[in-house]
């Protein structure tokens, strides 16, 4: 009887078959293919030609590749902590009361990428964008952010940080799972808001935050593509040429598929290393708390 039931349980794996097959075909196969293509010269027209590690050597000497990699890392280093901190603050502020406010915070996330990018291209327009006009009305004349490297980077970080809906909702749910009794106890003991945050909220939500950070790093490597393509076209002076944009240009515009594949693998390894580092920190932090 028991064996029959457990056999039934294991049969559930069949339900995952479409998912597993599709994942293998749409992600696994392309990933392996990218590894193979990275060692070939391939332009999608004639057959691939084996060139050994030439692409990786060329990457090493390609200043634009290093710029793109640096830009992507810089973007993640700025956008991920900002988005997490802002989303955490909002979740703690809005977890009770004000469904309207929660909806408002989520709304920018709902806007389709291309519409969102166009909207910001207009908002940031130095001549007649609403931001420039608004600042001029209060006496600030300088509004050519998109024309300077750091202005353009900052603008892209700011506009993607606004789309924090998914992180916000997960943190909202995590906050609601915390035992309310703990907070009542703190209030009885007269702990200030900052103490409660440091001693109760932050430690209990840290695992969620760490996982969100790992996911957000991966996400931030791709969210740059549409804004960089539409708003800054990678400029000024390559300040917003991120890895996805550079891969897109090499692969789909110059048809250097082998070279782009080599870059793809570097990007994947960088992502994996960053995620592994974060999980390692999380594990160390947990161990130190349990000790």
């Amino acid at each position: 009887m028991k064996a029959g039931a457990s056999h039934g349980r294991e049969a559930m794996l069949f339900l995952a078959a479409p998912f597993l097959v599709a994942a293998a075909l749409l992600v696994g196969l392309p990933a392996l293919l990218a590894l193979g293509l990275a060692f070939t010269e391939y332009d999608a027209l004639s057959a691939p030609r084996f060139v050994g590690a030439a692409h990786f050597l060329r990457l090493w000497d390609d200043p634009l590749f290093w710029t793109a990699l640096g830009n992507s890392l810089l973007f993640a280093a700025l956008a991920v902590p900002l988005r997490l901190a802002l989303a955490l603050g909002l979740a703690l502020l809005l977890h009770k009361g004000g469904r309207l406010a929660r909806s408002a915070v989520f709304l920018p996330t709902v806007v389709p990428d291309i519409a969102y990018a166009l909207l910001w291209l207009w908002l940031l327009n130095p001549l007649y964008g609403p931001l420039a006009l608004g600042l001029k009305a209060v006496g600030v004349a300088d509004s050519g952010w998109l024309l300077t490297p750091w202005g353009a980077r900052g603008a892209l970080v700011a506009l993607t940080v606004f789309q924090l809906g998914e992180v916000f909702v997960v943190l909202l749910a995590a906050r609601r799972e915390l035992p309310e009794e703990l907070y009542e106890l703190c209030e009885l003991e007269g702990g200030g808001a900052l103490t409660v945050f440091r001693r109760v909220t932050l430690p209990l939500m840290a695992p969620t935050l760490a996982l969100l950070a790992a996911r957000d790093v991966v996400v931030s490597l791709q969210t740059t593509f549409v804004p960089a393509l539409v708003i800054t076209q990678g400029g000024p002076r390559y300040a917003t040429t991120f890895l996805p944009l550079y891969i897109y240009q090499n692969g789909f515009e110059y048809l250097r598929l082998g070279y782009a594949s080599a870059m793809t693998w570097v990007m994947f390894l960088v992502t994996a290393a960053m995620v592994a580092a974060q999980l390692w920190v999380l594990r160390g932090w947990r161990a130190s708390r349990e000790a």
């Binding site: 392309p30 999608a44 991966v218």
Partner: peptide, 27 residues
């Protein structure tokens, strides 16, 4: 079975979509 499935899901979470679009296109 669980390990296979959970591993596949986690790996998918961690692969940036931009990392496979090129060769997916080729396929």
């Amino acid at each position: 079975r669980w390990r296979t499935l959970a591993g596949a899901v986690l790996l998918l979470v961690m692969v940036p979509a931009t990392a496979v679009w090129l060769t997916r296109f080729a396929v």
